[in-house]
Amino acid sequence: MNVLLDNFALFRHGFIGTVVLTAVSAVLSLVLGTLVAACRVSPVPPLRIFGTVWVTLLRNTPLTLLFMIAVFVAPQILFPGISYFTLAVSALGCYTSAFVCEALRSGVNSVPLGQAEAARSLGMTFSQTLRLIVLPQATRTVIPPIGSLMIALTKNSAIAGSFNVAELFAQQKRLSEIGYNILEIFVWIALAYLVITFAISALFRLLEHRLAVAR
């Protein structure tokens, strides 16, 4: 008997779960990461402090602990009745946003200061300067590190399986309970993750290439 073919529906369910969980968390982490990076480089001290605290807290907390807070603490005090999927997305998205923020910030610092000064001299506001001049030029340098972060996010999403989210890694437990050879299960699951991470690598290599010729 073959684990994959016999349980294809289960694998597919897990695979789609991982893809959706990763995709939604990735979008959240990119949006949050950009906002927090804007805070960190802004001239307004309270925003800068907020950005620093956000990054410091999330980057230095183990992801499993964040999941536990999201799953066991948050619903009780903040959002009763919220789905496990939403909680998992919040934990993964917030955690990854701290790293996205730092990648973006190093990208912002790689853009020559004169670019922002020229924009400000024309009368652009801080947010116009960031949006129209600095971030578009930072993007090219941050594409490779952000690609790595998205791959890490894919693999980190496995933790969600332990918290009642139907994703790839969680299927491993069910299959081994049924009695399949654990090594064989792992090989198939690892291959499924590889499909996702290779797709992400390819996407980011394409983006990098596109942005390089646009100059």
Partner: peptide, 25 residues
């Protein structure tokens, strides 16, 4: 002080830099 009003005023003052600082993208 820094803010919208300053931005408006800067629009009335052209600045040309030693290193050009044209928007590269």
């Amino acid at each position: 002080a820094e803010g919208r009003e300053l931005a408006r005023l800067r629009a009335d003052v052209g600045m040309v830099f030693q290193s050009f600082n044209l928007f590269a993208h």
